[in-house]
Amino acid sequence: MIQHSVFVVDDDPAMRDALLLMLRAEGFRARAFSSASDFLEALPPDKSACVVTDMRMPGLNGTDLVRKVRELRGDSWPVIVITGHADVPLAVQLMKAGVVDFIEKPFDPNRLLESVRGCVMSLNSREADRAAREAATSRLATLTARERQVFNALIEGCSNKEIALRLEISPRTVEIFRAKVMTKMEAASLSALVRMGMRAGDA
């Protein structure tokens, strides 16, 4: 499982240090930046990460940062906003911009940690799904033309007899090809094979 980074962006040195200390104590790989500009100029190469940012900062503010991160990294970098000046219109605006959580100061440290854990769990789940799609696509590429026909029919829900009629081969031959497909796709059951077909179709 990937250890996702947590990037803290806050112009308050005391708050930055406190957040880093708290996150690292919980086992997160955390790094801090003193401004949105500094963060964007030194934008880390991580494919996915969690960003915790203050709202009001000199230069680019939290809203600007949220929009820029969304533009550059999409939803693979979920953003949590911390602010001492919350209001409903701002919260709605940020949520529409892609923020996953909006935390008001003073906040309960456990509340923030819970939010960060949720982001990381979501990223891990997404990474697992991506790996599964890639694996299914890779295995699918190893099938012969005939095996692919049998595979397609199986995930459509066809029985061996129906596949035999469709491909004009004997049911026994279908059984042989079906076994080869299950082995090459590393599918322990028909339901697992169907899930692989769905994943490969989403890739």
Rank of each mutant, 00 (worst) to 15 (best):
A132T: 08
A135F: 11
V120T: 04
A132G: 11
G118M: 01
E127P: 00
R133D: 04
A131F: 03
S115A: 15
E114F: 13
R117C: 03
R111E: 14
S115V: 09
S125E: 15
A135L: 14
R130G: 10
G118L: 01
C119S: 07
M121T: 12
S138D: 10
A128P: 00
L123S: 05
V116Q: 07
R126H: 02
E114S: 15
K105C: 04
E134M: 15
L113Y: 01
T137N: 03
R133Y: 03
M121F: 06
R130I: 14
R111H: 13
P106G: 12
A135Y: 07
F107M: 02
A132P: 09
M121L: 12
V120D: 03
A131Q: 10
A136K: 04
S115D: 06
E127K: 04
L112A: 10
E114V: 11
K105I: 03
D129E: 15
S115W: 05
K105T: 06
R133M: 14
M121C: 08
V116K: 06
A135V: 12
A135M: 13
K105Y: 04
L123F: 04
E114G: 15
V116S: 05
L112E: 10
V116P: 08
P109L: 09
A136P: 07
R126V: 02
L113K: 02
A131W: 03
P106C: 09
S122I: 08
L123R: 03
S138V: 12
C119L: 04
R130W: 12
L113Q: 02
E114Q: 13
N110P: 02
F107R: 00
E127A: 10
A136S: 07
R130V: 14
S122E: 13
P109W: 04
A136H: 01
